[in-house]
């Protein structure tokens, strides 16, 4: 189970284009990437973190993975505080981050086993997990190939297997379908659904996305974030009921950008903020 409460994080981003005076360096812009994000993700369920670009999704997941220290807020994974015991929390999480670089000179199996060893598995246990994950993700023919020249889908599978090598109870995925074709996306969805079931381990799965269809098809629960705030949470049906809409996209636009966006054009201010935050939160 993953619980986040009142998370806030600001960055000093890129410098202004023009300095205040000609001889001083331009000041950095302070960007409030996350202001107040909080949600609970239960075991045996898929929780979608849905928000426009720059809403603070990637920052939230990076804080959860212990890469960034939060300014405020509490994060816990199975009751372990992420800020106080980041390594213990990481041992209970499998994170597929935005960056999915593999080692091109190593085979897919070696990439997976390397992470297994770093997670503290023995050599044989790591090998066995690589086999099992290859079976689950349908990537057995890839195992012995060097990863250079892998397609996007093959890369994603390898990176996912690498993140799941220690059989974590919690799985965190940052925009996992980015750059995947229809078949690869479907295969990923099937894998996630299976991991949610009791046979698959009843994992707690959190994934971030900005794609509505993804959420509609997969998520038990949706957390809508916008401009660094959690603006709504519930199942797809609940969110539709809350906004009085039939179309989930329309419901999302209302939740994320406010009722003023009923005209299907988001207000300019929201767009501008999203773009500014996007400079650091790609």
């Amino acid at each position: 189970m993953i619980a986040i409460e009142g998370l806030a994080k600001a960055f000093f981003g890129a410098r202004l284009a023009k300095p205040v005076s000609s001889w001083r360096r331009a000041e950095r812009v302070r960007v409030q990437a996350v202001s107040n994000i909080g949600f609970h993700a239960a075991d045996g369920a898929i929780t979608g973190l849905l928000g426009p670009n720059g809403a603070g999704k990637t920052t939230t997941l990076r804080v959860l993975a212990g890469l960034i220290e939060p300014d405020a807020g509490r994060l816990s994974v199975d009751g372990i505080d992420v800020v106080q015991a980041p390594r213990a929390a990481l041992a209970r999480m499998g994170v597929l981050s935005d960056a999915r670089g593999l080692y091109p000179r190593l085979s897919a199996r070696e990439n997976i086993v390397y992470y297994g060893r770093l997670q503290g598995l023995g050599r044989d246990a790591a090998q066995a997990r690589a086999e099992a994950l290859a079976e689950m993700l349908d990537m057995r023919p890839l195992l012995e190939r060097r990863t250079e020249g892998f397609s996007q889908g093959e890369r994603m599978k390898t990176a996912l297997a690498r993140a799941l090598v220690h059989d974590p109870a919690n799985i965190v995925l940052d925009e996992p379908t980015n750059g995947l074709d229809v078949l690869a996306t479907r295969a990923l969805r099937d894998s996630l659904r299976w991991l949610r079931t009791p046979e698959g381990g009843a994992k707690c799965i959190v994934f971030s996305t900005h794609i509505m269809q993804e959420v509609e098809r997969l998520c038990d629960r949706v957390v809508v974030v916008s401009q660094g705030h959690t603006v709504a949470a519930g199942s797809v049906a609940e969110l539709l009921a809350q906004t009085g809409q039939n179309d989930f996209e329309e419901a999302f636009v209302r939740l994320a950008f406010g009722d003023a966006a009923a005209s299907a054009h988001p207000p300019r201010s929201a767009l501008r903020t999203a773009v500014a935050a996007g400079a650091i939160d790609g």
Partner: peptide
């Protein structure tokens, strides 16, 4: 090289010091 490949971020998500 590790930064350029984007493999440093995932590497740091392992519980190793």
């Amino acid at each position: 090289g590790e930064r350029e490949r984007g493999s440093l971020e995932p590497l740091l998500m392992n519980p190793a010091e």
